[in-house]
């Protein structure tokens, strides 16, 4: 069991300002960054604010940035870093700061409320529909989401452009729309609203959401691009438009 003194820089402050403060903290074999933050709280900075809960990568609470990369603190092993490396821990930089490592993620809950709920056909009674596995397995991947909002944090559409938060719901909620759009029992047509109300067109598929997802959900390839293709069929495909007109198909 080897231990060493790790070098840490942790952002401390609130909406009035703050700074990166240097700490030397004991690191033991097998620990994760959240362990170090807890040791820091226990030994040097009892008022350090950090949001956490399960310590198992399932609650999505301890999202932050380690050496500039959005990560879950509880899933970032210290063995990733060199022993003499200075490890910088900061709050997520796409959201308003509350204090220290805690941010206000209410933007995400507002966007969640804007997504139309699951809409089954009106006349369908409980038990009338038998779901096949192949009909739902695409959506099951998206149900792994733990809502850590790391994808929302890293998405440059809002990270680099605060003004886009009004028009753009972010990868997590565009994935939710894709999940419902692919659901065999969802009767709502979500293609127009994905483009007009949730800003799918802002996504330029640079895959950062996929890169940071701790659940390894292929957000871009399996949700955002298929949704873009569905919108393209609905809005930008003249052959589909002509087919709908000629054969009087629904929108």
């Amino acid at each position: 069991m080897s231990s060493y003194q790790g070098q840490f820089r942790v952002w401390r402050g609130d909406s009035d300002g703050g700074s990166l403060e240097d700490f030397e903290v004991e690191v033991n074999e097998g620990e994760v960054v959240l362990d170090i933050i807890h040791r820091l709280q226990a030994t040097q900075t009892p008022d350090l604010a950090v949001r956490w809960n399960c310590k198992a990568g399932k609650c999505g609470s301890c999202s932050a940035e380690v050496n500039g990369r959005p990560r879950l603190l509880c899933m970032t092993r210290m063995s990733l870093f060199e022993k003499d490396e200075v490890i910088t821990v900061t709050p997520m930089r796409s959201f308003s700061i509350v204090r220290d490592l805690v941010t206000d993620v209410s933007y995400n809950y507002e966007k969640a409320r804007e997504v139309q709920a699951f809409t089954p056909p009106g006349k369908l009674q409980p038990g009338e529909y038998r779901m096949q596995q192949e009909d739902v397995q695409r959506s099951q991947e998206f149900r792994k989401c733990i809502e850590c909002f790391l994808c929302q944090d890293t998405c440059h559409v809002v990270r680099d452009h605060e003004e886009n938060k009004l028009a753009f719901s972010g990868p997590r909620f565009l994935m939710r729309i894709a999940e419902l759009e692919m659901h065999p029992l969802d009767a709502a047509d979500r293609r127009d609203t994905a483009q007009d109300d949730h800003g799918l067109g802002y996504c330029n598929i640079t895959k950062c959401c996929t890169e940071v997802c701790p659940e390894n959900i292929k957000i871009t390839d399996n949700a955002l691009i298929p949704m873009k293709e569905r919108v393209a069929g609905r809005r930008y495909d003249p052959v589909v438009w002509l087919g709908n007109k000629l054969f009087k198909r629904g929108k």
Partner: peptide, 20 residues
């Protein structure tokens, strides 16, 4: 006043802290 420096986001001294 936009992006990672937009208030009331945490005010960090540099645009990116990535070390890789």
């Amino acid at each position: 006043d936009t992006g990672v420096h937009a208030p009331p986001r945490p005010r960090l001294p540099v645009p990116s802290l990535r070390t890789d």
